[in-house]
Design a protein around this nucleic acid. Sequence first.
DNA 1: CGGCTTTGACCGGCGC
DNA 2: GCGCCGGTCAAAGCCG
Length: 322
Amino acid sequence: MTEKPEEEMEASSTVAASSIQPPFSSQTSSVFPFVGDLFDADGGDTDSLGFLELLGLRDLYHTPPPLLFDHLPPAAGRGAEPPDGGNIPATPSSISTSSSTEAATAIRALTTSPAAAASAGDEGSEQQQKTSKAEEEGGKKKGQKRQKGPRFAFKTRSEVDHLEDGYRWRKYGQKAVKNSPYPRSYYRCTSATCGVKKRVERSSEDPAVVVTTYEGQHTHPSPILPRGHAHQPLLIPPPPPPPIGLSVLPSMGLSLPILGSYLHPSPATLPDFRPAAAVPPLPPLTHNAFSNRTAAEAEASSRDHGLLQDLIPSEIRKSDEL
DNA sequence: CGGCTTTGACCGGCGC
DNA sequence: GCGCCGGTCAAAGCCG
């Protein structure tokens, strides 16, 4: 395997973000997304969509087919090379929320590595193909390909490996991770029609950090109250309203715990989610941990990109706008 | 009883 | 071509 563990790249920004103190208190000491490295592993600062989008919102916002976000150093792939790490910015980058088809297209064009681009091309149907293929071939243990759908990862500082994100997951595997004393767990959304998967592993460098990788997008509403962990703050904003003329998915809450926590400074604000009409329905938030910018700045940016922008340093946004 | 976790085996991709 | 490794499957066991 190529020794390019996500952690390696994440580490740098991890530190930077560690100062953030998201509102996870029940079990999580602190949470913070590392949108930066993980997201732009690709090197294409401008080519990644926001994780929100990747989680499904993307489809809600963009008509174009799925793409990008194959950034994650293919955990599986020793084969996959680290994204053209050509320009891995020092600051968290690449989370761009292109809120227009045009932008999406541009992004697509920029899609980093050929491999990524290639896979991105048919990611959308990949999962289905995979499934049908597996069935076709007699179906078991077959459908394991590499890039399935858009993937994105983030790191959280948590005591628990599996963070509640509003969806129900079933663990289907666990493997030892090379160069790490911690195992990686594989989860799949319990919804039969939902092929979303996620991997959870602890950083070998910082055991307190949990790296969660999402793959695919939910095609169903969030159960909201998974496994009766009502005591745990769920950070899933209500499904966004059908955006700009395209509502591909019924509703997909964000399956990002930390992201959620970010979007919502405190669990209590969750319900504060407000649907917007033509703009990514993300609640404006200028006071989240990620905001280093001024409120005005954030506001300005959110006008075009929505809340996500709040998570992204101006530099990144800049590249996105370019 | 249903759903979930655990765990070992298997499969396919990729590097050498 | 071989071996390594990530990812997935599926049986068995556990729990509510």
